[in-house]
């Protein structure tokens, strides 16, 4: 689980960002990039001493100034779930592709024709049969 993938998945979620200078920013993540530069909305900024507060509609934080980010615990499971679902979807899509292409390849010499529309379903059927 890459830290940047966790951050990308945290878009629209609330988080706490502490900067190297000790200031904290509480807000919802709008966007982030590979340098971990982030934009937050509805931000509550607290000074390093904890005595001064600001409310900002939106702010941009440079990644190089961040010390750490605190995100909701539920996010980890949500991201892992999403990654698993994406992997399953990718696998099934690739599987259909492979069996379809294989059937077409093998069908060509015996058929001798590429543009045989009537042949196509049968070719596909053969591929599907092999796949199953």
């Amino acid at each position: 689980m890459l830290p940047l993938s966790l951050l990308n998945a945290a878009q629209n979620k609330p988080m706490l960002v502490e900067l190297k200078n000790g200031e904290t920013f509480n807000g919802h993540l709008i966007n982030c990039d590979n340098f971990m530069n982030i934009t937050l909305r509805e931000v509550y900024q607290t000074s390093a001493e904890g005595d001064r507060f600001w409310k900002l509609k939106e702010c941009y934080i440079r990644g190089s100034t961040i010390k750490y980010l605190r995100v909701p615990d539920t996010l980890l499971d949500a991201v892992k779930e999403e990654q698993n679902r994406a992997r399953e979807a990718g696998r099934s899509a690739r599987g259909a592709h492979v069996s379809g292409a294989g059937a077409r390849g093998r069908g060509m010499p015996t058929r001798g024709g590429r543009g045989m529309v009537r042949g196509a379903p049968a070719r596909g059927g053969r591929g599907r049969g092999r796949g199953a």
Binding site: M1, P3, L4, L6, L7, M36, G63, I66, K67, Y68, L69, R70, V71, P72, D73, L75, L76
Partner: peptide, 30 residues
Amino acid sequence: SNVVLSDSKERVYSMDEGVEEIPLGLYLVK
């Protein structure tokens, strides 16, 4: 070396009392 830590706790050490463990949850440390 950015790190994602789950179920994290901060351990605060002092000379006067024992170690205090503060639960922090899911953390992304630069």
